[in-house]
């Protein structure tokens, strides 16, 4: 598991990552199987609550630690600015077929 940008946050990060990964692996397989949107919403709500219950506490601790580390590294303003420029709150649209090619290109 990769380290945190601040060594003091690494133990919390590892605990949080492990918690998320375990939850995620259990979440994904049933989540992809086809079901009605009603069933999906029911399942998503149940799993979201379960994640909060299992990983919520360690997340609060880790988040606090990493937020401080981000500020200490001088990344706070850069991150805020990036969030204003590209909020990315919703999934981006699929790339148009024209953008897809298997080679790299460059233009001015």
């Amino acid at each position: 598991m990769a380290h945190s940008l601040s060594p003091e946050c690494t133990p919390l990060k590892h605990a949080y990552d492990s918690c998320f990964n375990t939850w995620f692996e259990g979440y994904l397989e049933p989540a992809v199987s086809p079901s009605s949107s009603e069933q999906r919403a029911q399942y998503s709500k149940k799993k979201a609550d379960e994640f909060e219950e299992r990983c919520g506490k360690v997340w609060v601790e880790y988040k606090q630690c990493v937020q401080k580390a981000v500020k200490d590294k001088g990344l706070g303003d850069l991150l805020d600015q990036a969030r204003v420029e590209n909020p990315l709150r919703d999934p981006p649209p699929a790339p148009s077929p024209g953008e897809v090619s298997s080679s790299s290109s460059s233009s001015q």
């Binding site: 990769a2 380290h3 945190s4 940008l5 946050c9 990060k13 949080y16 990552d17 998320f20 995620f24 989540a31 999906r40 919403a41 399942y43 998503s44 709500k45 799993k47 979201a48 609550d49 994640f51 997340w59 880790y62 988040k63 990493v66 937020q67 580390a69 981000v70 991150l79 709150r89 999934p91």
Partner: peptide
Amino acid sequence: HVVTVDVVDRSIDSKSGIIR
């Protein structure tokens, strides 16, 4: 070259099930 990875925000949409 990637030495550190940190989650700074995460949300699970309780309707769509999308994880951001």
